[in-house]
Simulated scan of single mutants.
Amino acid sequence: MSISGVELIPVPGVRNFRDAGDLPTTSGAQLASGLLYRSGSLHEITEDGTRHLAELGLRTVIDLRSQPELDVWPDRALGADVAVLHLPTFPPREATAEEIAAERDNEERDAEAGRESLEGLYAFMAETAGPAIARSLSALARPGALPALLHCAVGKDRTGITVATLQSALGVSDAEILDHYFVSNSALGLDQGPVLYVDEFGVERRSRAISRDLLSAFFARMRERHGEARAYVRAHGVTDAELAALEAAFLLTP
């Protein structure tokens, strides 16, 4: 199925699966397809879904979820040839019984990270997710790491900012990035309204639709502090050699 020109890839048991490439850059190069995929978690992937991923030749899976999420919903194994890296976007969070009880009465909590609003979440991510994003990019730059899959719970917020930062660092325009990011709404059914779910602490939450303004706000905060995406990831540990490796892997020149 295609949404706004972006092809969703049907993988049984996995939500929001799509290629993170096949996008033009401002330099005239093209971001290659078939090297990086994005999705929701793999804890419900079926045998057919596992075979489908094997056909894509995956070498690496990067899981951005927290340890409590992995404890409750561990990904199903894809085979010995696939390296699995746990690189959580957020610092560890210990929830007390009192906090969990209070959260049950707060339906405005965010779908993935427990911030009071999606606006708060994206500001929080711009301030704190830099080291995790940098670790993901460094992992993708390793020899033999590609093709790779990067995912969080539903492939919307944490996956969205990580993929968007990589795309921006490789020269994709904001307009192209925002269109690709926005596909998650239709892919997850959030264009029809909030979706209720129970989180890893047993708290009922609402997964709400994203807007282009959210990712734009993330970029604005990032650029306010660092100027642009390449400087942002360098500041958090990505080396020039790793950026060069990513360019060599992903950029197709005319």
Rank of each mutant, 00 (worst) to 15 (best):
G5A: 08
V6M: 03
L8N: 08
I9L: 14
V11A: 09
G13H: 03
N16K: 04
N16P: 07
R18I: 01
D19E: 10
G28P: 03
Q30W: 07
Q30T: 06
S33K: 12
S33N: 12
L35P: 00
Y37E: 07
G40C: 10
E44Y: 07
T46M: 11
G49V: 01
R51E: 13
A54E: 06
I62V: 15
L64C: 06
Q67F: 13
E69V: 06
L70C: 15
W73F: 12
W73T: 07
V82F: 12
V82K: 12
A83K: 13
A83Q: 14
V84M: 04
V84H: 14
T89D: 04
A102F: 06
E103K: 08
E103Y: 07
E107F: 11
R109G: 13
R109N: 12
D110Y: 04
A111T: 06
E112G: 14
R115Y: 10
S117Y: 03
L118D: 03
E119T: 11
L121E: 04
A129V: 08
P131C: 00
I133P: 05
A134S: 08
A134M: 11
R135P: 02
S136G: 15
A141H: 00
G144Y: 03
G144K: 05
P147Q: 12
P147T: 14
A153C: 09
T159L: 02
G160A: 06
T162F: 07
T162M: 05
L166T: 00
Q167A: 00
Q167D: 01
S168P: 00
A169W: 01
I177N: 05
I177G: 01
L178V: 11
H180F: 07
S184P: 06
A187Q: 08
L188A: 14
G189W: 09
L190V: 09
Q192Y: 07
Q192C: 12
V195I: 15
Y197I: 03
V198P: 06
E200N: 12
E204I: 06
R205G: 14
R208I: 11
A209P: 03
S211H: 14
R212W: 01
R212D: 11
R212Y: 00
L215I: 03
L215H: 06
S216L: 13
A217Y: 09
F218H: 08
A220G: 01
R221C: 10
R221E: 12
M222Q: 15
E224F: 12
G227D: 07
E228H: 15
R230L: 11
A231S: 15
A235D: 08
A235M: 03
H236I: 10
H236G: 09
G237C: 05
T239D: 04
D240F: 02
D240N: 11
A241G: 12
L243W: 02
L246V: 03
L246D: 02
A249M: 00
F250C: 00
L252S: 07
